[in-house]
C-alpha cells in the first residue's frame, strides 16, 4: 500500500513527532514498504478468531489499597528540564 505525504503528516502530528521535510520522501518509501509487508496478513481469514492481546491468559491481580510511596519530589525533579516551586514548567497551555 502506498502512503501519501498527508498520511505521514497526519500520523506524525498525532504522535507529536517533528519530521524534517527533507526526510519525508524516505519516510513515505519506508512506511509504504512496511505496510506492504504487513498487508500479507490480509491473506488469512480471521473471521472467527478471538483476538489475543496478551500471551498470559490470566486475570488482573489486584493490589491492596495501601499507601506505599513517599515523597521523592526532589529526586524526581533533579532530572527535570524546567521546574519552579515544585511544579514542572511548560509553555503556556491555552484553554
Amino acid at each position: 500500500m502506498s502512503l501519501q505525504q498527508s498520511d505521514i503528516e497526519k500520523v506524525a502530528h498525532l504522535a507529536r513527532l517533528g519530521i524534517d521535510p527533507a526526510d519525508m520522501p524516505e519516510h513515505i518509501k519506508n512506511l509504504s514498504s512496511i505496510l506492504d509487508l504487513v498487508d500479507q496478513m490480509n491473506a488469512v481469514d480471521t473471521e472467527s478468531v478471538m483476538p489475543m492481546a496478551h500471551p498470559v491468559d490470566t486475570a488482573q491481580r489486584l493490589r491492596p489499597d495501601e499507601v506505599t510511596e513517599t515523597d521523592q519530589r526532589e529526586q524526581f525533579q533533579a532530572i527535570a528540564p524546567q521546574v519552579e516551586a515544585g511544579l514542572y514548567l511548560v509553555p503556556k497551555v491555552m484553554e
Binding site: 493490589r63 489499597d65 495501601e66 510511596e69 521523592q72 515544585g86 511544579l87 514542572y88
Partner: peptide, 22 residues
C-alpha cells in the same frame, strides 16, 4: 487511600508533586 495504579497517597491539598510517585 492510594491511587488507582500506584501506592501514592490521594490526599487533597498537599504541596505540588509531593504525591506523584514514579
Amino acid at each position: 487511600k492510594s491511587k488507582i495504579f500506584s501506592g501514592a497517597a490521594t490526599a487533597y491539598g498537599t504541596a505540588p508533586n509531593t504525591q506523584a510517585c514514579a
